[in-house]
Amino acid sequence: MAAINKYTDSKGLTSYRVRVRLKGQPVQSATFKRLTDAKKWAQQTEAAIREGRYFNKSVSQKRTLSELIDRYIERVMPQKKVSTQVPQKSQLEWWKGEIGALSLASVDSSRIADCRDKLTDEGRSPATANRYMAVLSHCMSYAQRDLQWIERNPCHDVRKGKESRGVVRFLSNDEIGEDGKVLVKGERTRLLEVCKASTCKLLYPAVLLAMSTGMRRGEQFSLTWRQVDTHTGRILLEDTKNGERRVVVATGPALAELKGMAKVRRIDCDLVFPGQRNTAIHLNKPWYAALKAAEIEDFRWHDLRHSFASELAMSGATLAEIAEAMGHKTLNMVKRYAHLTEGHISSVVERMTSRVFGGDS
């Protein structure tokens, strides 16, 4: 039931204090200048509590976005993979710097949209802006479902930026003449030659392995020797992007490099590619130096993975086979390589036509 008490202060101003008490529920209270507003609030609040849809907005007015982000980093972030924590913490710190001082009640869809636009205005891609939006949305969902600090996630009302399908950048192969000799060295050959001559002894095997297996950077540089079977070339990947274990196979030169590395591996560190302090090695400096020496432009480490997938496609692998080799659960992510499989599809259709109808088509 609701109780309304009238108060008059020393200046003669009147106010009405409302308290709504229902069995098994906390007392809700508010103060109004007009009796009609007090009665209206009491009626609406009592009905909302009975129907299980009441939210105390005073909580969202007292808590700031910075408080929420700090709580999220402390309680939720440690449950995520380390490779995920690093970029998301940085993104959340950006949000704190922009609108962290605001109360959660003030962080509405329009403010979030303004921040989204600022990200792109500063030169970040729509895809990157969407990643910033996603981690904030996770934060807001935590505030809504676990903490009950907000009634609704405002990020759900903000439009995401349109992401490009992405450009498939892969290394070019050698140009071969009719006599079988190399006319022009392709990017692949040039890059491997430069990496092999690098003073960083781990650069060549790292590039070769990425090129030969399609492993993600995080998967490769967290790799330990207990995950590698140098006899069969089987590599068990445990810390994958989709959270599932998968197996890749190193063959040929990549397997030979692994066998050679295993013979002289460090006994104080189980990492396949260790740095100086028993952590994964950072190859940025020798990697960029190699790209420059090999005269290769607009190429990232991740593009070695694209090169692996592209070579699979041009070697006749189906999209399903490419997805399995890349560790994708669906075919959506490998449709970008579909145009490279057209020759293979054509030959399959030709073989079917010949078998069904006989002779040449």
Rank of each mutant, 00 (worst) to 15 (best):
A2N: 12
I4M: 04
N5K: 14
Y7V: 09
D9M: 13
S10N: 14
S10Q: 09
K11N: 14
L13C: 05
V18P: 06
R19G: 01
V20C: 06
R21F: 12
Q25D: 02
Q25G: 08
V27M: 05
V27S: 04
V27P: 01
R34D: 03
R34Q: 00
D37Q: 07
D37L: 11
W41H: 07
Q43G: 08
Q43D: 15
I49S: 04
I49M: 15
R50T: 04
R50Y: 03
D70E: 13
I73C: 04
E74A: 13
V76F: 03
M77F: 01
K80R: 10
V82I: 01
S83E: 02
S83V: 11
S83W: 04
Q85T: 02
K89T: 10
K89A: 10
S90A: 12
G97M: 11
E98P: 00
G100V: 13
A101K: 04
A101I: 13
L104C: 03
V107M: 10
V107W: 12
S109Q: 10
I112D: 03
T120F: 05
D121N: 13
R124N: 15
A127H: 06
A129F: 06
N130I: 11
Y132D: 05
V135W: 03
H138Y: 11
C139P: 03
S141W: 05
A143D: 06
R145C: 08
D146S: 13
I150Q: 01
P154N: 15
H156K: 12
E163R: 03
G166D: 04
V168H: 03
V168A: 09
L171N: 06
S172V: 11
I176W: 01
E178D: 12
D179S: 02
D179I: 01
L183Y: 06
V184A: 14
V184E: 12
K185M: 13
G186F: 03
R188Y: 01
R188N: 11
E193H: 05
S198C: 02
K201C: 07
L203H: 07
Y204K: 10
A206E: 05
V207D: 15
L209C: 07
M211A: 06
S212E: 11
E219L: 10
Q220S: 08
F221V: 12
T224C: 06
T230M: 07
T230P: 02
R234E: 13
I235S: 04
L236P: 02
L237W: 01
E238A: 07
D239I: 04
K241F: 06
V248K: 01
T251K: 05
T251F: 09
L255S: 06
L255H: 00
L258V: 02
G260D: 09
V264P: 00
R265T: 07
V272I: 07
F273K: 00
G275S: 06
A280G: 08
H282D: 06
W287Q: 03
W287Y: 14
Y288C: 05
A289F: 00
A290R: 08
E297F: 12
R300M: 09
W301A: 06
S307R: 00
F308Y: 09
A309G: 12
E311L: 09
A313E: 10
S315P: 00
A317K: 07
A317Y: 14
A317C: 14
E321C: 08
E321G: 15
E324I: 08
A325I: 03
A325D: 08
M326A: 13
K329I: 10
T330H: 09
R336S: 10
Y337Q: 08
A338F: 07
A338G: 02
H339Q: 10
V348R: 07
E350A: 15
R351E: 09
M352T: 04
R355G: 03
G359N: 14
